[in-house]
């Protein structure tokens, strides 16, 4: 009888499943989308002409600045000015 039998197949399978599941989150830009109007100031990824680039947004929830978020989650994000947008928008107004 080997020591392997001290751990059940179920325990090992559970551990491997949990380990594998931790990789199921989007890991690359290919699975991300640009989401406008959700980033806090200084935490944006880039912008549509309002300022130069990453980290330079000067206002919270700026509709001209985007943040990369997991694909499909942008328009579900709630902000004090409404949900995120896949296109640049005018806000806060």
């Amino acid at each position: 009888m080997s020591t392997a039998r001290n751990l059940t197949t179920a325990v090992l399978a559970g551990a491997v499943t949990a380990a594998v599941a931790s990789f199921a989150v989007p890991a690359s830009a290919a699975e991300m989308e640009k989401c406008y109007g959700v980033s806090l100031k200084g935490q944006n990824d880039c912008a549509a002409g309002a300022h130069s680039c990453a980290g330079t947004a000067t206002i919270d929830y700026d509709g001209q600045s985007f943040k990369l978020v997991p694909a499909g989650t942008c328009t579900d994000m709630e902000t004090p000015f409404g949900p995120g947008s896949l296109e640049p928008i005018q806000r806060p107004t």
Partner: peptide
């Protein structure tokens, strides 16, 4: 060693051993 016995060895060496976390770390 097989995964089964390596897991037993890991647990024996440290009570804080987290099998799933170790496997995830090795995959990554």
């Amino acid at each position: 060693e097989t995964l089964g016995s390596a897991a037993v060895i890991g647990e024996a060496s440290d009570s804080r051993f987290d099998l799933s976390g170790n496997i995830a770390g090795l995959i990554s």
